[in-house]
């Protein structure tokens, strides 16, 4: 398989958020700022790459019927690794992302890739697939975070661009839904233009 295609599909053609509508809980929950979106995306990417790697390594050793529970244990282990490392080295970000770090374990993107891709493909392809899907997810979260931060608090990655308050609605919960809704419309418009 063409590895470049395999890698880049996660960004546009099969983007987890904008096209497949997977992993929406953290997408909406943590994107109150661009940096939170980026942090969450990278944490998820790590879990995705590692679980894809391990699943494709052990795929022939695991009987079919207990496949899913075994995958879940593998994923949950890497989630806990991320949790512990973040608490030790980036405690501020860990506090801000809160509940959504342990919830990576139920992110449909991660289990979905393990089941649909890594359990059928070679180690190298699975690694590339995990990195592509993860970084595509990271991109989506960062874009949504940047848009909400820009509209909601008039800042870009924490740098204040305007003084005073902006449209506060966008960093409140309803703003998450609205911003993602309109970004999807935008994505559809781009799709129409290009095809």
């Amino acid at each position: 398989m063409n590895q470049w295609k395999n890698f880049s599909k996660g960004f546009i053609k099969e983007n987890a958020v904008f096209v497949l509508f997977l992993g929406l809980c953290p997408t909406l929950g943590v994107t109150t700022s661009a940096i939170n979106g980026l942090g969450m995306g990278l944490a998820t990417t790590f879990v995705l790459v590692m679980s894809n790697l391990v699943v494709s390594l052990v795929k022939n050793l695991i009987p079919d019927k207990v496949r899913i529970p075994a995958f879940i244990v593998i994923i949950a282990s890497f989630v806990t690794v991320v949790e512990l490392v973040m608490r030790g080295y980036v405690p501020g970000l860990f506090d801000a992302l809160g509940l959504f770090i342990p919830l990576i374990v139920v992110n449909c993107v991660v289990l979905g890739r393990a089941e649909a891709f890594a359990s059928k493909n070679t180690i190298w392809s699975s690694l590339v697939d995990g990195a592509g899907m993860g970084l595509g997810f990271t991109m989506a979260l960062t874009v949504l975070g940047a848009v909400r931060e820009l509209l909601g608090s008039g800042a870009f990655f924490g740098m204040k661009l305007i003084s005073g308050d902006a449209m506060l609605l966008f960093i409140l919960p309803p703003g998450a839904f609205l911003a993602l809704g309109y970004l999807l419309v935008l994505a559809n418009m781009i799709k129409e233009k290009t095809s």
């Binding site: 703003g175 839904f177 993602l180 809704g181 999807l184 419309v185 559809n188 418009m189 129409e192």
Partner: peptide, 16 residues
Amino acid sequence: RMKGVPIAFIVAGLMA
């Protein structure tokens, strides 16, 4: 362009 999921999100935003 808004059919399906996009409009669903916007409705959810109004509900929120």
